[in-house]
């Protein structure tokens, strides 16, 4: 269980990384924290010709608090964001969800952007990015573009990133006064979510985003539904997600969780709405 051969570039500048990406395209793979990519390399599921390590690019290792948005660079490890003193005030949903991402030993290495890049359908950070109307800042030697998270993640581990692009940063919208709630059900703490639910309660209504059920995180916006109306909306959402059976849970179970946990996190979000 050893990786297939690859070249390795420890980029010191963004331009250096982008030049290799431009030259190698889909044969190159960016490695940041490596907590998703390395197992794939070890199992030989992924066999890039060259690995571009971006963790020594100083400009990427920043959390920029831009007031109405927080921009998290590609070099920011999950543990670093979790330790950011303003996290709970600025991005309370991330503060709730990030402890569910892996374990302390993987958060210490894994990055926020790496998790978004990987686009695992169960992962918490893509879920939060979608729930918070986040953006993905893509960069290549030829251009710079910003995609809404919903456009970036196209399916299971599939994204709109072009082969010569890398994620430079992800940006989360900061919206004071909104309440949020998060809960996840997994076989064990730290496992891939069977269902993860993130809720936002704002002045005009509620939002529920769900990971682990469909091929990618999905969300619904509703007015401030209550009672049966909310149950019906949750039920319709649960079915729309087209859950499947796997060895850890049945489709029915996943729908049950969307109905039940979805309601719980919406209630939680409403309780902390200002």
């Amino acid at each position: 269980m050893k990786p297939a051969p690859f070249d390795y570039v420890q980029a010191e500048t963004l331009d250096e990384a982008l030049a290799v990406l431009a030259a190698e395209g889909s044969d190159a793979r960016v490695i940041a924290g490596g907590q998703s990519l390395m197992p794939m390399l070890n199992m030989r599921l992924a066999r890039p010709k060259v690995l571009i390590d971006v963790m020594r690019i100083g400009s990427l290792a920043r959390v920029d608090d831009g007031g109405d948005r927080v921009v998290v660079g590609a070099g920011v490890r999950q543990a670093a964001l979790l330790a950011w003193p303003r996290l709970a005030a600025k991005l309370p949903l991330i503060a709730l969800a990030l402890p569910w991402t892996g374990h302390a030993q993987t958060r210490s290495r894994g990055t926020i952007c790496g998790s978004v890049a990987h686009a695992d359908p169960s992962a918490e950070m893509p879920l939060c990015l979608i729930a918070l109307d986040g953006e993905v800042h893509l960069r290549s030697a030829r251009r710079r573009r910003v995609l809404p998270a919903g456009d970036y993640i196209t399916g299971m581990m599939s994204t709109a990133r072009d082969d010569d692009e890398l994620i430079e940063a992800v940006a989360f919208r900061v919206r004071p006064g909104r309440g949020c709630g998060f809960r996840e059900v997994a076989r064990r703490h730290g496992d891939f979510a069977i269902a993860a639910c993130a809720a936002i309660a704002h002045a005009d209504g509620i939002r529920l985003a769900v990971a682990g059920v469909a091929d990618r995180p999905e969300l619904r916006d509703w007015p401030d539904l209550e009672g049966d109306a909310l149950d019906d909306a949750l039920n319709a959402f649960a079915y729309d997600l087209d859950a499947r059976d796997d060895i850890h849970a049945t489709a029915r179970y996943r729908r049950d969780l969307v109905r039940q946990i979805g309601r719980d996190v919406i209630d939680e979000a409403r309780r902390c709405r200002v």
Partner: peptide, 24 residues
């Protein structure tokens, strides 16, 4: 496993909404 236990206690599942896009 939780899904197996839940299946024992959950009872009938609420039906998919009429005219909904998908049924299981």
């Amino acid at each position: 496993v939780p899904a197996r236990i839940r299946a024992l206690i959950a009872g009938e599942e609420p039906p998919a909404p009429v005219g909904g896009m998908t049924a299981p």
